[in-house]
């Protein structure tokens, strides 16, 4: 154990004002423990961030840099080139998949939010018609999964195979999200609804005018959960989408990045095809970027969103 004053003086974790968030009774950790913790956390951070860094660096590298590394990934592009991005975004297979994925995510998220909020509000009202059986149906949906084949056959019978709706309708309502929203709505003060109803507002007006404006935080979290799910959807796309020109991003990624099929000139709409590796990496980056954009917004709220469900569900 090092003596306390030294540890305190050199600790990098003190805030600038010199105040410690550590209670009086808690001893400062020894230098050894601090070093072990620091190294362990630093290794974890590198393990998480290095893949992103490598992919971005390689997507920006020019032909000479790639050749210098023996055709593999690069960690530091000596020669920058945006050729891969301009090729990927100039129309062709990746651009089309991006458009499709963005549209599905936007339409799907709006429908999901509207349907889930409506359902959750209905279930949150005391004495609502058939609320209990519906709630049981929702809880059962979390416990039992019907299996791949029956799901597939239902989508097929409905004629939704190879339609974009097959990526939205089967996953439109997530039972867990509805239950989280219902728990949140139940926390809102009853008096607000009652006074509005005395003033002659019907259930829909109360939902739109009172409940939703008060629930922006939970709507944001659930909306972003839905959006991430739509953006990432791979399984349903693999099952239901059969024609190549309807592929969302996930299937394009599988074909051209995971399975390493070459992206050819006619699939790109570009005159000169840049080297394959940066092309693949640029495609990968385009799939990650939307998540990185929304991430700071979710990040502030999601722990709350997850925990409402854990506590009240």
């Amino acid at each position: 154990m090092t003596s306390m004053p030294t540890t305190r003086g050199s600790s990098p974790r003190r805030n600038p004002a010199g105040r410690s968030s550590r209670p009086v009774w808690m001893e400062s950790p020894s230098r050894f423990v601090q070093v072990v913790k620091f190294v362990a956390l630093a290794v974890c951070v590198v393990l998480v961030l290095l893949p992103f860094w490598a992919v971005i660096a390689t997507s920006l590298a020019d032909q000479a840099t790639i050749n210098a590394s023996g055709g593999g990934m690069v960690l530091w592009p000596d020669g920058f080139s945006f050729a891969a991005y301009s090729a990927v975004l100039s129309g062709g297979v990746v651009t089309r998949a991006l458009t499709i994925s963005i549209l599905i995510t936007m339409v799907g998220t709006s429908l999901s939010l509207a349907a889930s909020a409506g359902l959750a509000y209905w279930l949150s009202r005391p004495g609502a018609f058939a609320a209990r059986p519906v709630l049981l149906l929702l809880l059962g949906a979390i416990l039992f999964s019907p299996g791949i084949i029956p799901n597939y056959l239902v989508v097929k019978e409905l004629g939704l195979l190879d339609s974009y709706w097959s990526l939205i309708l089967p996953v439109m309502i997530n039972a867990f999200n509805v239950i989280v929203m219902r728990a949140f709505f139940q926390e809102l003060p009853r008096e607000l609804f009652e006074s509005a109803e005395i003033d002659g507002a019907n259930a829909v007006t109360v939902l739109v005018r009172i409940v939703l404006p008060l629930s922006k935080a939970v709507l944001a979290v659930i909306g972003l959960f839905y959006a991430v799910a739509y953006w990432n959807a791979f399984f349903n796309a693999l099952l239901y989408i059969t024609s190549n020109d309807k592929w969302p991003m996930s299937l394009v990624l599988r074909t051209y990045v995971v399975n390493q099929s070459a992206i050819s000139t006619e699939q790109l709409n570009a005159e000169a095809v840049p080297p394959q590796l940066p092309l693949q990496m640029a495609t990968l980056v385009m799939a990650i970027v939307p998540i990185l954009i929304v991430y700071p917004f979710i990040q502030r709220h999601f722990a709350k969103g997850v925990l409402i469900g854990a506590v009240k569900g």
């Binding site: 290095l50 893949p51 992103f52 490598a54 992919v55 390689t58 990934m73 991430v228 953006w231 990432n232 959807a233 791979f234 996930s250 990624l253 599988r254 990045v257 995971v258 990496m281 990968l284 799939a287 990650i288 998540i291 991430y295 979710i298």
Partner: peptide
């Protein structure tokens, strides 16, 4: 928040 496709692709590249 990344899909499996992305995770698998990242692991391949690493």
């Amino acid at each position: 928040f990344l899909s499996w496709v992305i995770v698998v692709a990242l692991f391949q590249q690493m």
